[in-house]
Amino acid sequence: MANLDLIDRKIVAALMQDATQPIAQIADQVGLSQTPCWKRIQKLEATGVLTGRVALADPAKLGLGLTVFVGIEAADHGAAWRDAFLAAVRKFPEIMEAYRMAGEMDYLLHVAVSDMAAYDDFYRRLTDAVPIKNLTSHFAMERLRHTTAYPINTRDR
Rank of each mutant, 00 (worst) to 15 (best):
A80I: 13
A118K: 10
F92W: 13
R145G: 15
T47I: 11
H138T: 06
A55I: 11
I26F: 03
A117N: 08
G103C: 05
M1E: 07
A46H: 10
S33R: 02
L50P: 06
A55P: 05
S114Y: 03
A74S: 12
D28C: 01
S114E: 08
V111I: 09
V49C: 02
T147P: 12
Y123G: 00
F85C: 10
T136V: 10
S33H: 03
L64Y: 09
L6W: 02
D120L: 03
A55F: 14
R157E: 15
A117R: 10
V54A: 07
K39W: 04
N134C: 03
H138F: 09
A13T: 03
N153V: 15
N153F: 14
A75P: 12
A118M: 05
F139T: 07
D83G: 13
L126K: 04
L4M: 10
A27H: 00
Q29C: 01
N3M: 11
D28N: 06
L108H: 01
A140E: 06
R124Y: 12
A2T: 04
I23A: 05
N3D: 11
I152G: 11
D83W: 12
E45W: 05
A98V: 08
K43Y: 04
F139K: 09
D115F: 02
A84G: 14
R82Y: 10
M96A: 11
D5K: 00
G78E: 09
M116E: 04
N153Q: 15
L86F: 10
M116Y: 06
V30C: 05
R53N: 01
Q17S: 06
L144K: 14
T148N: 08
D106Q: 01
M96Q: 09
R155F: 13
E94W: 04
D121V: 12
Y107C: 04
R155L: 14
P151D: 15
I152T: 14
I26D: 02
A19Q: 01
D18F: 00
T47R: 15
A98I: 07
T154A: 12
H146L: 12
R157D: 15
H138Y: 08
N153L: 14
R90A: 15
R143V: 15
H138L: 04
E45K: 09
L56G: 08
Y123V: 03
K91I: 09
A129G: 02
P59R: 06
A55S: 10
L44S: 04
G52T: 07
I7V: 13
E94F: 06
T20Y: 01
G65L: 06
A112D: 11
A140N: 10
L108G: 05
E104I: 08
V12N: 01
V49E: 02
S137K: 05
N3P: 00
D8K: 03
L135C: 03
A80K: 15
A75C: 08
L66D: 07
G31C: 05
L108I: 04
F92C: 14
Y119R: 05
H146Q: 14
S33C: 02
P36E: 00
T154E: 11
Q21D: 03
Q34K: 01
D58V: 12
E142C: 09
R40S: 02
I11T: 01
A13R: 01
A140M: 08
E97D: 10
R145N: 15
R82W: 10
A13H: 13
D106A: 00
A118Q: 07
A46L: 02
